[in-house]
């Protein structure tokens, strides 16, 4: 049972369409809208916000020539990147090499299908919503393996192997930590997880704290954010790219549009990581005064800012240390968290 009508239903309702036709049209228009919201955000994040943020950390100014605050750089960069020559190296494994840049961004976009963004913007609200989001996000690993294997480049290969190792090592703690939230919420359905968090937790000096799971279980939140950082491959876990070690990792051989697609995928992936974290731990689109969608945007951008902060200020771990933390630290802690949560929930309920 959905608490709120999902976006396709709203659209078909507005258009006055019924039945299968309504589902199809509503679904397509809704998907188009959601995908574009994310693409616009990424367009801001990639060519502009990332530069500005990194520059601020490094005492620089960054883009400021074209448009107010250099914002039109987004347009010029789009033209620049699209008009560059697409270099296809000899010996690449053609279908896989071409497909990978599509698999990476679209898998991340797919994850947004079940994310409640507030103001009724949610494409679908299946009972297994959370599992779907993780499953969709993991498809990106497949794309990375394709890039690494098809590039016929040793740096790419090492990068892809590192990415897979990282994904296996950190996906498990990530999902296990999310499972502890599911135990609290009693559902995998995204809208219900959000709804559970709306109840008041305690009131301090007239300010009522909601039962956001970040407040209920800050330890799980910290674990989730760390594992998420590893998932999206940012410092201190940017092992798969590691520019000073393996040039650019799995994306070494990609140029022009393919490069843009892979980078697009990475940024959407960061936003998806932020969106899942916001949904599970920060009450989804909930927040005072401002409309839900604005809060949702603020939350996922906060996560984006956090990844850029880490990127600018934290050194990179060595690959073996990275895996050691994943298998020996995060995994153990996340299971401990799960068991503890289960006991607490079992005793209270």
């Amino acid at each position: 049972m959905s608490l709120q009508a999902v976006l396709p239903d709203t659209i078909s309702g507005l258009l006055g369409l019924e039945g299968v036709l309504g589902d199809i049209v509503g679904g397509l228009v809704g998907a188009f809208l959601v995908a574009n919201i994310m693409l616009i955000m990424t367009a801001f994040a990639g060519p502009w916000a990332k530069r500005k943020i990194t520059a601020a950390f490094g005492d620089r100014i960054a883009v400021n020539r074209i448009g107010p605050f250099g914002l039109l750089t987004i347009v010029t960069d789009a033209v620049r990147l699209l008009s560059k020559e697409l270099i296809v190296p000899e010996g690449v494994d053609r279908p896989a090499w071409d497909l990978a840049p599509m698999v990476i961004p679209f898998s991340a976009l797919l994850g947004f299908a079940v994310i409640p963004m507030g103001n009724g913007i949610q494409l679908a609200d299946p009972e297994t919503g959370l599992a779907f989001a993780f499953a969709a996000a993991s498809i990106a690993s497949l794309g990375i393996v394709m890039t690494g294997y098809a590039s016929n480049n040793k740096f790419s290969l090492i990068g892809a192997l590192r990415a897979v190792a990282a994904n296996i090592a950190y996906e498990i703690p990530l999902v296990i930590t999310a499972a502890s939230v599911v135990i609290f919420a009693g559902s995998l359905r995204m809208s219900e997880i959000v709804a559970v968090q709306a109840e008041p937790l305690l009131t301090v000096a007239g300010v009522t704290l909601p039962t956001w799971f970040a407040f209920v279980n800050p330890f799980a939140f910290a674990l989730f954010i760390i594992a998420n950082l590893a998932e999206v491959g940012r410092n201190p876990f940017d092992i798969p790219e590691a520019p000073t070690e393996i040039v650019a990792g799995y994306q070494t051989e990609y140029s022009s549009v393919y490069f843009v697609l892979i980078y697009l995928g990475e940024f959407i992936h960061i936003f998806l990581g932020g969106a899942i974290a916001a949904t599970l731990f920060l009450g989804g689109p909930a927040g005072p005064v401002l409309p839900g969608f604005v809060w949702f945007t603020i939350k996922i951008w906060a996560f984006f800012l956090f990844t850029q902060w880490a990127r600018s200020a934290v050194p990179r771990l060595r690959v073996d240390q990275f895996l050691e933390i994943g298998w020996k630290g995060m995994l153990v802690l996340s299971f401990a968290n799960l068991v503890l949560t289960a006991i607490i929930v079992g005793v209270i309920a």
């Binding site: 990194t54 950390f57 490094g58 005492d59 620089r60 410092n235 940017d238 790219e241 590691a242 520019p243 000073t244 990127r311 600018s312 200020a313 934290v314 050194p315 990179r316």
Partner: peptide, 18 residues
């Protein structure tokens, strides 16, 4: 050196350059 360990053109490098 910080750059080699940190990975990207990050804060330390810019501070040292400054």
């Amino acid at each position: 050196f910080a750059l080699d360990v940190y990975g990207d053109f990050t804060a330390i490098f810019m501070y040292a350059m400054r």
